[in-house]
Amino acid sequence: MKTKLSKIAHGRAGDKGNTLLLSLIPYDPINFEKLVKNVTEESVKAHLSHQLKGEIKRFVLPELKAIQFICQDSLGTGVTTSIAMDTHGKSLSYALLEMEIDLN
């Protein structure tokens, strides 16, 4: 059964220049391993291919039970010069949470 990430996890988006940072944190630590297995550099790139134009690096943080994605070239040149509505990409935390994964 497919579940939307927003049902089991939360996160915040940040920006450094043209690099987008997305955290992903399970509400219940029991789901951490499922996130690690299903929410990978490849699956995130596929889910947000229209936005994420560069290399994606994932940091898995087992002590914190959290994941951090570092997405290069993903903010249309970055907060100071982007002509997008959301120049920081702050709303994109919720775009990641739209992704569906198989919880079984």
Binding site: H10, S23, I25, F59
Partner: peptide, 13 residues
């Protein structure tokens, strides 16, 4: 705290 700890962090290590 977790959301803020990772906020704008390019490399948590």
């Amino acid at each position: 705290a977790k959301e803020q700890l990772l906020y704008e962090v390019l490399d948590p290590f």
